[in-house]
């Protein structure tokens, strides 16, 4: 994964609050965000993760200027999303996995209307639309009305539309939801390529932990409108799951002293199978082997399991 070294933030969010009022005449208050703060470096792919109803879409919608926060501050590319909303809109774009467009317009017309919405002159717009159709393999379907496109094609079109203004910040809300695995993989590759080639900052919400793990430089976990944890995926996995799991098949009980070794967070046994949780397996394995060797404990089998972001998600969503 490419680490981001830029110091300037593309997105800065400070103490963001949003509560929805539903029902009439006695409105019910539904807090969606409760004091969210984070920063996204320019050029990073930043993941917003969390279970349904965590506030992910609310957060992304505020950053996309589709929703006004009640309290707190959000700045995108140095601009306040409430006060400078129009200028923010010129420099960002949004795509969601469940996007929908006007049913009778063809794929080409949808991109054309989107490009016109950004004021693109014909000399820029026409080649741009053609290039996007090619890039997202939609050329063969350019003249097909939207309601006759397959789900995969609709999603590709939604992604293509998000690039129509070559945004500096791209907001992707569940971009690969419901797609065939091969298309999802290609879209992920493309997202990674975009960041690499254009230094585009990408804000991504996803349910697929593998996607976040593969793409994101940093992630935040939201639950009930609050950030539970945040950081780069590797550190998070260790912090939240308390480290890597080392499973050893040993003889005798010479393993008992393992729990006193530095970096060992837990040690349990089930017959001859010993499970050790360490902060970093690569660092601690030599010490574990030295400890067992000194006590004459032979190791017949070894398995090391690194925690996945998925297990972090499950842990945090509990």
């Amino acid at each position: 994964m490419n680490r981001v070294t830029a110091t300037e933030s593309a997105v800065e969010v400070r103490d963001l609050h949003k509560t929805f009022r539903t029902g009439w005449p006695r409105p019910r208050l539904q807090p969606a965000l409760r004091g969210v703060s984070f920063a996204v470096p320019r050029g990073a792919i930043f993941g917003v993760l969390g279970p349904n109803g965590a506030g992910k879409t609310t957060l992304l919608s505020i950053l996309a200027t589709l929703l006004v926060p009640d309290r707190g501050e959000a700045r995108v590319l140095g601009l306040d999303v409430t006060r400078d909303a129009h200028r923010v809109r010129q420099r960002i774009n949004l795509s969601s996995g469940s996007a929908s467009f006007l049913w009778s317009l063809t794929a080409q017309e949808i991109l054309d209307v989107a490009a016109r919405s950004y004021g693109l002159a014909a000399r820029v717009r026409r080649p741009r639309v053609t290039a996007l159709l090619q890039q997202f393999e939609l050329t063969a379907h350019a003249a097909v009305p939207y309601n006759e496109l397959s789900t995969g094609l609709k999603q590709r079109l939604a992604l293509a539309k998000a690039f129509v203004n070559d945004p500096e910040l791209l907001i992707l809300d569940e971009p690969t939801v419901g797609l065939d695995p091969d298309i999802s993989v290609r879209i992920r590759e493309q997202i990674a390529e975009l960041r690499r080639s254009r230094r585009m900052t990408i804000l991504l919400s996803t349910h697929y932990m593998r996607e976040a793990e593969q793409l994101c430089d940093e992630v935040v976990f939201l639950r009930q409108g609050q950030i539970l944890a945040g950081g780069d995926p590797d550190t998070l996995k260790r912090e939240v799951l308390l480290g890597d799991r080392v499973e050893l098949v040993v003889e005798g009980d010479g393993w008992r002293g393992l729990s006193s070794l530095p970096g060992v967070l837990a040690c349990t046994s089930d017959g001859g199978r010993v499970r050790v949780v360490v902060d970093d397996a690569r660092k601690r394995l030599p010490e574990i082997f030295r400890h067992l060797d000194e006590r004459g404990v032979p190791v017949t089998d070894l398995t090391v399991t690194e925690p996945t972001l998925e297990s972090v998600f499950i842990e945090l969503a509990r």
């Binding site: 010129q90 420099r91 950004y118 004021g119 693109l120 002159a121 820029v124 741009r128 290039a131 996007l132 090619q134 890039q135 690039f163 203004n165 070559d166 945004p167 500096e168 493309q190 390529e193 975009l194 080639s197 254009r198």
Partner: peptide, 12 residues
């Protein structure tokens, strides 16, 4: 990827 358009052009 299609060649990026100049950001000035992108904004119209």
């Amino acid at each position: 990827l299609a060649a990026p358009i100049g950001r000035g052009e992108a904004l119209g």
